[in-house]
């Protein structure tokens, strides 16, 4: 039961981070927290049943891999994203000192 409440609280934190964060990397982190909360809810519900239900566990495993794929694509986009005002004439980001 406590883990369901925890899942709800993490959901709130992730959602608020997703909407209020300024930096895109922080949005990616928030999205990960959000998905972790949903997984937590799924497994906490699955734990109630007897015998232990393996199907939600498999779904969460699948979900974790899909989350990593999403994160990888988002980060690859993010790395190619020049911050405004910090690029040279050719549009490439300047090297950090």
């Amino acid at each position: 039961m406590m883990y369901m409440v925890l899942a709800g609280a993490l959901f709130g934190i992730g959602l608020s981070g997703l909407f209020s964060a300024r930096h895109p990397l922080r949005k990616v982190l928030s999205l990960n927290v959000l998905s972790a909360s949903v997984f937590l809810l799924l497994v906490a519900v699955a734990r109630q049943s007897e015998p232990l239900d393996a199907v939600p566990h498999a779904i969460v495993l699948t979900g974790i891999v899909v989350t990593v794929s999403t994160t990888a694509v988002a980060l690859a986009l993010l790395v190619r994203l020049p911050i405004r005002g910090r690029q040279d004439a050719a549009g490439r980001p300047k090297e950090r000192p």
Partner: peptide, 22 residues
């Protein structure tokens, strides 16, 4: 992945979250 992306990011003016918008 996050650390490798962080190493290649331009550090923008990130001072935590802003006031919640919308």
């Amino acid at each position: 992945l996050l650390l490798s992306a962080l190493g290649r990011l331009e550090y923008s003016d990130d001072r935590g979250a802003s006031a919640p918008r919308e």
